[in-house]
Design a protein around this nucleic acid. Sequence first.
DNA 1: AGCTAAGCGAGACGGTACGTCCAGTCTTGCA
DNA 2: TGCAAGACTGGACGTACCGTCTCGCTTAGCT
Lengths: 196, 196, 196, 196
Amino acid sequence: MTKTKAGRPRSEKAKQAVLNSTYELLTESGGKKLTIEAIAQKAGVGKPTIYRWWPSLADIVLEAVLNQADVKIPVPPYESLNTTLRQFLRSSMKSINEGDGSNLRYLMSLAQQDESFRDRFRENFVAKRQEILKSILRQAVDANDISSTQDLDMLVDLIFGSMWYRLLIGHGTMDEVFADKLTDIVIKLGNSDEVC
Amino acid sequence: MTKTKAGRPRSEKAKQAVLNSTYELLTESGGKKLTIEAIAQKAGVGKPTIYRWWPSLADIVLEAVLNQADVKIPVPPYESLNTTLRQFLRSSMKSINEGDGSNLRYLMSLAQQDESFRDRFRENFVAKRQEILKSILRQAVDANDISSTQDLDMLVDLIFGSMWYRLLIGHGTMDEVFADKLTDIVIKLGNSDEVC
Amino acid sequence: MTKTKAGRPRSEKAKQAVLNSTYELLTESGGKKLTIEAIAQKAGVGKPTIYRWWPSLADIVLEAVLNQADVKIPVPPYESLNTTLRQFLRSSMKSINEGDGSNLRYLMSLAQQDESFRDRFRENFVAKRQEILKSILRQAVDANDISSTQDLDMLVDLIFGSMWYRLLIGHGTMDEVFADKLTDIVIKLGNSDEVC
Amino acid sequence: MTKTKAGRPRSEKAKQAVLNSTYELLTESGGKKLTIEAIAQKAGVGKPTIYRWWPSLADIVLEAVLNQADVKIPVPPYESLNTTLRQFLRSSMKSINEGDGSNLRYLMSLAQQDESFRDRFRENFVAKRQEILKSILRQAVDANDISSTQDLDMLVDLIFGSMWYRLLIGHGTMDEVFADKLTDIVIKLGNSDEVC
DNA sequence: AGCTAAGCGAGACGGTACGTCCAGTCTTGCA
DNA sequence: TGCAAGACTGGACGTACCGTCTCGCTTAGCT
């Protein structure tokens, strides 16, 4: 029995206005002008409405980014480790270079300032990306492109770790060359058991 | 002709008071209570004194951390890749677990909020750590523990990247097991050319 | 033909709940916690219901106070100016000291903030009290206790004016002594024409 | 030995800007647009500067009114009760009619909302006016225009009480006629002892 | 030895954003 | 169609820090 709650229901319009305004302010300024006050003003929404629905600025940003990015990185159907991973990493790099990078850096920054948001960021964002990459690697194991003794989580840490590292520090490029190097390294590691 | 400037010279006492207070506030609260106001109060120093000598809060934190951590991670004399790298990574993990991790996370967060500080953070902090690791790897190449065709920068990115990734996201442990896995992977990759 | 209106009729229960809650909140806090929100919550009533029936918070308060105080100050049957006025003023003082004073002060405060409520306050509240006092004075004129040339409105202003003044400023007591002094003054003034 | 306090001294400019802006906003709107936010904006002053120096909006208003009104009601040198009091009350009425009335009403309203401000209002404002009137009456006693047995405080309450009453309720005019009536009443009461 | 100019602490300044409270309005479903 | 519930826009609240400023007081080096 679905009990409908009394009272005026949440305004979907207000919700979308907040998320869109947040996303725009974020991409405009890289986070410098992103304040609750500014979001409220731009969205034409009262501040209490924002505080009613999100526990912190960070959570608005996370939802706004998810709201936009839902379908941006398509998981390609598995062909071979060489092909599929390379393509996945190349398109990841591309998306980062095209502006998502700044959002990611901002989210990571927020995650360091709020313990509880860090948890939500991990669960709702990072974990999902890890799962996508891991599923590619699992298919590679099934296809015998990676030895079944490999620690896939470790591979994921190596790949995403070095990508985040370059993104956050800014000492190296996020281009196809980097994607290819990473792919080659995974291929090497995937086969290393048979050899040594 | 070195003209000594007239007037009262910079107070070394004030400088140290600021750096120490900053470090204490940082480790106490993980950054939450770290404001210029709080530093000035705790150090018994006027705010203008702080602004005279540091361009931003981030730079104070960076100097405070460097001030404390200068000698914490000793570079061991090279024996073998297996021994020396393992030793280095294990002691890195230990230092991170013992409290430095929180400071690193805070610095990285600040680096995302200020473009120009990010540069200084890279040059004065990250680059130095990279150089230490790279010098170990270079010695490994000299000792034929790593093939001379390897891209050492890439190895550094893999190692430090995955470490930062775990530190920032908090999805995996920073312990000896992780240090050993990383060491093993570097050894595998170092030899992979000869084999495949 | 009296057409009964369609739809649900006004809930008398809701009305009383609002007035009672208002009165309680008012006497509890002297007006500090008296907000429409608080009234609605305490009365278990929706805010729109309140706005439908009263033009402002002030009007609710006025009605709530009238609702409670209707019969508090009985007009005694006229005996003599000395007896009846003294009695009336003494019981007025008593009621003010027993808690009504705070309500009166709050109403007067509200009346200064809203021009149109000030009119309603004057018509529905103050004027009625003035009329009661004036009717006593009129009976005194009839009984020759006051000279018929006296300006009764002026006497009312003197009496109620000095009472409100003490109540609002708080520089003097509202006790029997004050009531008696006022009575004596009225008696003196009432006869002054014959004499001087 | 006068010890000068350390730190930047209070800005007299900011103080005057606040008081002037407050006075203007008050006379413009009768208190409706008078918010700390608006004062800060109009005065070109930060809100914290206001909160540093005044405990509440009411206290700003009080000081602003005092700041403006310091010399508005001159105490005339005593001639006779008939002349001096009449003149004093007439000029009081005039000042009230010319705009001060609204400020007084607003101050009285604020005094009902804040117990501690009510005390300050009484001490710093009302008491001073009472003292002025009482000094006139005292001179009248010295000149034998008022019997020495009269309770002067009571007379003050009657005069100022009825004036405030008319001002706050708005049921009667504040004109020369009223001033004259009050004067006459005081004269009558002043002599009443000899007679009755 | 005294002068002088910069550094020092203290703390007020104009601001910005915070997170909260309440106002007054709107939109539901139930009675 | 009135009601309770409760979400809505909006505005002011009082607070925390920001980065700048103006004080009077050190204090070290140069004359």
